[in-house]
Amino acid sequence: MKNRFMGSIALAGLLACSVVAPGVAQQPGGAGSIPRTPDGKPDLSGIWRTDSSTAGPIRPTSWGASRYNYNKLPEGQGARAEYDPIMHCYRPGIARLGPPLLVPSKSIQVRMYDESSPFPGGPSEFDVIELRYYPGRIWMIYQYNQEVRQIFTDGREHPAVDEYDQNSLWWNGHSVGEWDGDTFVVDTANIRNETWLNNQGYENRELHLVERFRRIDAETLEIERTFTDPVALAQPYTTRAILKVRHDLTFTENVICDQHYGRKVGFGFGGVLGINNHPQ
């Protein structure tokens, strides 16, 4: 009786071991301790925060330079805030979403006690992404403005661009990705042109982006981004971000221009009456 009991425990143990959680399997003899998915590729999933980044110089075309000169303030003071699309509640666009996140600190407002306040720490604290696997794609969720994008891994092509069809251009572009060894290469096209490349006022018109995701070790993800734009850039522009895994982080709900949606916003319907603030 005792033997049979021990036998069933052993069998249960065997059954338990046969249930494998994806992403936990270790590749024996692989590169360091990089977690891998069942297909043997590095596991990119998780919550990541940018630890450091570099951005190469932007070499605009003469058209790009004229836009930049129009948008910038005199010598070294950055860009004119009133021309920055983010300051008009536009979405940031795939270039500025990063990583690295290149948005004005002023645009990061979170709601605290019924008031909107600037988020302490600015873009560096807000530069958090979450990567999740899904059939046929990888979802990327950004802390900033709760942006999302899909990176399709099912071999599809970019849709044709029709400048007059808003449905063929996206704020975050159309992304397709495939593995090149242990590097995940993402190609993004169909990017809307109402965005800037960074806080300095460089614009884009026919932007194309190639990103290379590389999980360097168990805690580190590197994302290298190369932008090309035949209209705006005379040479490719490259940024590089190093992200650290941060499963402890909780996303804060963030909506650009959240502070517009308060009960009393100046005059008008958001204001004197207030949305849902009726004289009763």
Binding site: H88, C89, Y90, C257
Partner: peptide
């Protein structure tokens, strides 16, 4: 509703 239209016309200032 394409709220982008809304955003274009409604500057902060």
């Amino acid at each position: 509703y394409d709220c982008t239209q809304f955003m274009v016309r409604k500057p902060f200032f």
